[in-house]
């Protein structure tokens, strides 16, 4: 039997736990960023399609959640920084090779714009709303006048925002679990699905929920398809990819991934949505809650598991 033993002299407790550097702050942000991206995307999409009347929750009410999620997410990212007082350094430069740089710039744009989006619907949601200042009224009229171009901008920004949550991880060559290009689309679809779940939870309108439910079923199917492809890629990959895959097949993340993410977070809510579309009564919060739960666990699993995987040398 060939023995191989590697002993590192770096047994310094202050360094090694720190290399496992990203914790709940990053997972929570990836979840909230995807969720906000989903809400903004569908709000913008239905405005562009001219379905504002048919989809009041998606366009107006649910869009209140987006800036809240973004602000909490940004706070969480800020907590994660180790050199907090220097955070403004992000905005003194643009570095195209760094996903984190253009992610930070996207957040700087989309967060205030998502607040403007909600503000432009305030009078429709609360008829007695008064802006008090004249310039705010003028600004509101301006936004309402250019609503469609505004929706297009939000649509594109929401795509970047949601894809960024995946690309942030996939850009790291040193962590084989993350370093797969499919992570971008996977986080995009998963984020949009959690966004839809939030809209469906808030929606009081039966016909609107049916439309959203159908879109969500497609997203869940695409997500499952992408997950299968992700693991096919790992199985056919090099040794480091196979080790990454083993974390999910018998390793410490097997149950949390296949049971909590895939079964409870995707398949089960999809079945409930199909039953609902067939006319059975399903409490509307159940599939939504399961989807949100699955999305959150998915991000925790990916962030934690990715940091274990590494090159073997």
């Amino acid at each position: 039997m060939k023995e191989e033993l590697i002993v590192s002299g770096k047994h310094l407790p202050k360094i090694y736990p720190d290399l496992h550097l990203w914790h709940w702050e990053i997972s929570l942000y990836l979840f909230l960023g995807g969720l906000a991206g989903g809400i903004i995307f569908f709000a913008a999409y239905f405005v562009i399609m001219g379905k504002e009347k048919a989809m009041p929750t998606a366009v107006k009410w649910a869009s209140i959640v987006a800036p809240l999620a973004l602000v909490i997410g940004l706070g969480s990212l800020f907590i994660d920084l180790n050199h907090k007082l220097y955070f403004w350094r992000l905005y003194t430069t643009i570095r195209f090779q760094s996903p984190m740089s253009w992610g930070a710039w996207t957040l700087l744009l989309i967060t205030p714009l998502s607040i403007v989006w909600v503000a432009s619907y305030m009078k429709e949601m609360f008829p007695s709303w008064d802006w008090k200042f004249k310039f705010l009224n003028k600004f509101e009229a301006f936004v309402i006048k250019f609503r469609k171009p505004f929706a297009w901008i939000m649509l594109i920004l929401s795509l970047i925002l949601a894809v960024y949550t995946g690309i942030l991880l996939s850009a790291f060559n040193a962590r084989p679990l993350w370093n797969v290009s499919i992570l971008g689309p996977l986080f995009l679809v998963s984020g949009y699905s959690t966004g839809l779940a939030t809209i469906m939870w808030i929606s009081q309108n039966e016909s609107e929920r049916k439309v959203l439910s159908r879109i969500d079923l497609i997203l869940i199917a695409v997500e499952l398809f992408l997950i299968i492809h992700l693991f096919m890629g790992f199985m056919a990959g090099t040794q480091v990819k196979q080790e990454a895959f083993n974390l999910f097949l018998g390793g410490p993340f097997t149950v949390s991934f296949w049971v909590f993410v895939v079964l409870i977070g995707l398949i089960f809510p999809a079945v409930l949505e199909i039953f609902e579309l067939r006319g059975y009564h399903v409490p509307k919060w159940v599939p939504s809650l399961l989807l949100l739960f699955g999305g959150l666990v998915f991000r925790f699993v990916m962030v934690e598991a990715g940091q274990i995987t590494r090159y073997l040398y």
Binding site: K10, K14, I15, D18, L19, L21, W22, D80, L81, N82, H83, K84, Y86, F87, R89, L90, S98, M100, A171, F172, N173, A174, R175, Q307, R310, Y311, Y313
Partner: peptide
């Protein structure tokens, strides 16, 4: 340096660490 840790995650050699001062 904002101490975001992206470089630490990207290093295959684990050559970086967070200084107690944050950077």
């Amino acid at each position: 340096c904002i101490g975001c840790g992206a470089c630490i995650e990207s290093c295959p050699y684990d050559a970086r660490y967070v200084h107690p001062d944050g950077y």
